[in-house]
């Protein structure tokens, strides 16, 4: 049985959903899913990893690894690689994962497929598909170097298997032999919103200039509340007008997202915005102007006043999803 080593990301005692996606994928492929996790106070995390389907957990726990650092976590992950000898390594394509994975690839001297939207584990082999040119094209990755084959995978790209409540994974403690570290984490300043980031949400509800002001975004927040695993985003026009801060901006100069469902409210659909969400699985557009370019990329379009439609939609979703 091939071993897949997975990097687990967690926040405030909860494992990020993308980790579950990676574990599920490894299990679906019939591989042994071994999960590496580092941090402080990992008991709840380790339990959750077990329930997500991890066969084994390698936990590096302690004060020294309280904060993410590519040096420390990189060294420890490489130690875990040495002890588990995986054929495939899967890391979430999150800020942490994207920062860390290439370091590991360099230390191991292996190839890394970045930001994949599709992977296929076939025995000891890995096939990966990834977007390039800001999603204007896709390509498959052929690994021509030695094992292990590494990939960072986009959140929401893979499906989550059923959770197994009560299942637990064998946890091995990893010694915190990080070696001398050069850089130091001085502080981590939480963003104003503790909510889900647009890049990680499964459903994104975005508002454009038609929102008219910052307060009106509340109706989008209400819609987001009834939709599971969702976040609110904004177009550049809305951010420039000050309705939402830059961290909400979806687009060429903001964040690139590929959620399962993208609902664009009062967004005209200029090319620059499309560049940030065109790879969404399903796009819904709500706009007063029937000629708005967004309708050309939307799977479902509603020509109407978003101030009328969105609250009604919120009601309908509430009814349907319970």
């Amino acid at each position: 049985m091939a071993t897949v080593l997975i990097y687990a990301e967690h926040k405030e005692g909860k494992v990020k959903k993308v980790t579950h996606e990676l574990i599920s994928e490894a299990n679906r492929a019939g591989a042994e899913s071994v999960v590496f996790v580092a941090g402080q106070g990992l008991d709840a995390v380790n339990k959750e990893l077990g329930e997500m389907g991890a066969k084994r957990v390698i936990a590096a726990q302690g004060d020294a690894v309280k904060f993410y650092s590519n040096e420390a976590y990189g060294k420890l992950f490489v130690d875990a690689v040495k002890s588990t000898n995986p054929s495939v390594i899967l890391i979430p394509a999150t800020a942490q994962g994207k920062d860390l994975a290439p370091r590991i690839a360099a230390l191991l001297g292996v190839g890394l497929a970045s930001d994949c939207t599709k992977i296929q584990i076939d025995g000891e082999k890995l096939k990966a598909t990834r977007p390039i040119y800001a999603g204007k094209a896709v390509a498959d990755v052929e690994f021509v170097g030695p094992k292990p084959y590494m990939a960072t995978v986009r959140p929401n790209a893979l499906s989550v298997g059923a959770a197994s409540p009560g299942a637990s994974a064998a946890v091995t403690a990893l010694s915190l032999d990080t070696g001398a570290l050069k850089s130091t984490v001085k502080d981590v300043v939480r963003g104003a919103t503790a909510k889900l980031d647009v890049t990680e949400a499964n459903i994104v509800v975005s508002g454009g200039r038609a929102m008219k002001n910052s307060e009106n975004f509340a109706i989008l927040e209400k819609l987001s509340e009834v939709l599971p695993n969702s976040a609110v985003g904004a177009s550049r026009a809305a951010v420039d007008a000050g309705y939402r801060p830059h961290s909400y901006q979806v687009g060429q100069t903001g964040k690139v997202v590929s959620p399962t469902l993208y609902i664009a409210c009062g967004i005209s659909g200029a090319i620059q915005h499309l560049a940030g969400m065109r790879t969404s699985k399903i796009i819904v557009a709500i706009n007063k102007d029937p000629e708005a370019p967004i309708f050309q990329v939307a799977d479902y379009g509603i020509v109407g006043d978003l101030f009328e439609v969105v609250p009604l939609l919120t009601e309908e979703f509430k009814k349907a999803l319970g």
Partner: peptide, 10 residues
């Protein structure tokens, strides 16, 4: 990083 969180590193 995500959600507007900022890491300060020396």
């Amino acid at each position: 990083t995500e959600g507007g969180t900022i890491e300060i590193i020396a």
